[in-house]
Amino acid sequence: MDLDLVGKRAFVSGSTQGIGYAIAEALLAEGATVVVNGRSEDRVAAAVRKLEAAVPGAAVSGIPADFEDAEQVRRLLGSLGEVDILVNNVGVFGVDAFEEISDDDWQRYFDVNVMSGVRLSRHELPHMLARGWGRIIFISSESGVNVPADMTHYGMTKAGMIAVGNGLAKLTRGTDVTVNTILGGPTYSDGVAQAVEEISQARGQSVDSMKSAIATANQTSLLQRFIEPVEIARLATYLASPVSSATNGAALRADGGILTTTL
């Protein structure tokens, strides 16, 4: 299927690795121009070089910015310009006992996971509405629906992303602008891979056996394995394209069947 993305310009936050990188690569492969983002100039430059090698002829550039730093975000918005596709992917996550999560931790999770998308969308949505076409995609998680007890701060922010996306979609009535959210499941991103490697070393087990054990421990998973970043990227690329025009205000699941509800 031709997703008709040639000539479209996209920005993907948090895209030097993991899901964000996979989305950037998938958009480039479809002919879009992509601006990637990471916390440092070195990480952004490395991602740009890697993407240029992976997709010959790709039109890719990068803007470094740490979404914990409001001043860096302001500079990013000042240099980004208008985009046709905005993918709000950047995020932090961790496993912490509720009583040990400080106020600063709660604020950091909210600033990075929720306010990043708010600030970027506030900057780009008016331009999309003025042009009459655009795509905003929030990369949330099934944890925003089924909030983990040991990741309450993370789940709260992912629920917030779902709410923001749904609210913004209501502003697009009668236009060809859409706002949708992806509920990803446990994905074998770079951070998860590192954690699995550390656990496997500590327990004296192979990475593959530990990876399988962790993935199959979730009794509601239908996939019974980790999701690969490219599997999330495929759905994001579809939602970014003109062919997804009838999908708006939705929270679409790419969770491997972990959520047990039908809606």
Rank of each mutant, 00 (worst) to 15 (best):
R39A: 11
V60E: 02
S102W: 09
V48P: 09
L77K: 13
Q72K: 12
V44K: 04
V36W: 01
N37A: 05
R135D: 04
Y109M: 13
V92H: 03
W106K: 05
E99V: 13
E124S: 14
N89T: 13
A70Q: 12
N89F: 15
L77Q: 05
R122V: 03
V44E: 08
R43A: 15
V114T: 13
F93K: 00
D84M: 06
V48Q: 07
G81C: 12
E100P: 02
I85H: 00
N113S: 07
G62K: 01
H127K: 13
F110N: 06
G134S: 05
V36C: 04
L51H: 12
L76N: 00
E99T: 13
V35S: 00
A53Q: 15
F67E: 03
D103F: 08
L86C: 11
V83F: 02
A58I: 01
Q72M: 12
E30L: 05
A32G: 09
R119Q: 13
V34S: 00
M115T: 11
Y109R: 03
M128I: 10
R75E: 14
F67N: 05
D96C: 08
A54N: 02
R49P: 01
L28N: 09
W106P: 03
E71R: 14
G132Y: 04
L76R: 02
D111N: 13
E41W: 06
V35F: 00
R39F: 05
F93R: 01
S121A: 15
S116K: 09
W133G: 04
L51N: 12
A58G: 13
K50Y: 00
D104K: 14
G57M: 07
F67L: 11
F98E: 12
I85R: 00
L77F: 06
D104S: 14
S121H: 07
V92A: 07
V44A: 08
V114C: 07
Q107D: 15
V60D: 02
H127N: 11
V73Y: 04
E124V: 15
F138D: 07
S79E: 11
E41P: 12
A65C: 08
G134E: 06
V35C: 00
N89Y: 15
L125C: 07
I136L: 10
S116C: 15
S102G: 13
P64F: 08
A32T: 07
L120R: 01
V90C: 10
M128L: 07
A65N: 03
D104P: 00
A47F: 07
S116M: 15
V36I: 15
H127W: 06
S116Y: 09
D103Y: 07
E124A: 15
V112D: 03
T33N: 04
I85Y: 00
V48H: 09
E30N: 08
R74G: 10
F93E: 07
G134W: 03
W133F: 13
D84R: 08
R119T: 03
W133P: 01
F98C: 12
E124Q: 15
S116A: 15
E25T: 02
F138T: 05
V83S: 01
V112T: 11
A59E: 11
R122C: 03
F138I: 05
E71V: 14
E99S: 13
Q72W: 11
V114Y: 14
E68M: 09
A46Y: 04
